[in-house]
Amino acid sequence: MTHHDELRLLPWVSPEGRPCFLSADDSSGYLSRLADNTEAVQLGMGADLLKSASEVLSDSASTTSDLMALAGALTSALRDVLRVAESRGHRLSPVAGAVHSNDEDGPRLPAAAFG
């Protein structure tokens, strides 16, 4: 759940290539639902591209042009997936019992958190 003072990173960028953010108390609003749907489409396209990538890479007849096109598509898909992961990570509620270390690796969970 997003708090009123937090901004949601949206799964698209501005025409200038800058990140877009949404400030909303209600995660069921039109833009929130559009962002959720866009994220789902981006993740699905990434999964489909991964299957295609395996086929291109295993095909000995693939040309340099095929590989360059694949690299471009994979780069774009990875950018989208990382944006989705960042956005969703910021919206996760803090895990009870998480211990933050002094280095910047993020929270550390106690062994009990894993059952």
Rank of each mutant, 00 (worst) to 15 (best):
M1H: 09
H3R: 14
H4M: 08
H4L: 05
D5N: 12
E6W: 01
L7A: 13
R8C: 08
P11V: 02
P11M: 08
P11Q: 02
V13C: 01
V13N: 10
P15S: 06
P15I: 03
P19C: 04
L22G: 00
A24C: 12
D26C: 06
S27P: 05
G29A: 01
S32R: 00
R33G: 00
A35Q: 05
D36K: 08
D36F: 10
D36A: 12
N37E: 14
N37R: 14
N37Q: 12
E39W: 04
E39R: 15
A40V: 04
V41I: 13
Q42V: 03
G46K: 03
A47G: 01
D48W: 07
L50M: 08
L57F: 04
S58R: 14
S58P: 00
S60E: 12
S60I: 10
S62T: 11
S62R: 08
T64E: 13
T64N: 08
T64D: 14
A69K: 13
L70Y: 02
L70F: 01
G72T: 11
G72A: 10
L74V: 15
T75V: 00
T75R: 07
S76F: 01
A77I: 09
R79D: 15
R79I: 00
D80E: 10
D80A: 11
R83S: 12
V84P: 04
V84Q: 05
V84W: 04
S87Q: 04
S87Y: 03
R88C: 02
G89P: 03
R91S: 10
S93L: 13
V95N: 01
A96E: 15
H100A: 10
S101N: 07
S101Q: 11
N102H: 06
D103H: 03
D103M: 05
E104P: 00
D105T: 13
P107W: 04
L109T: 02
L109A: 03
L109H: 09
P110W: 09
A111K: 10
A112Y: 05
A113Y: 15
F114H: 12
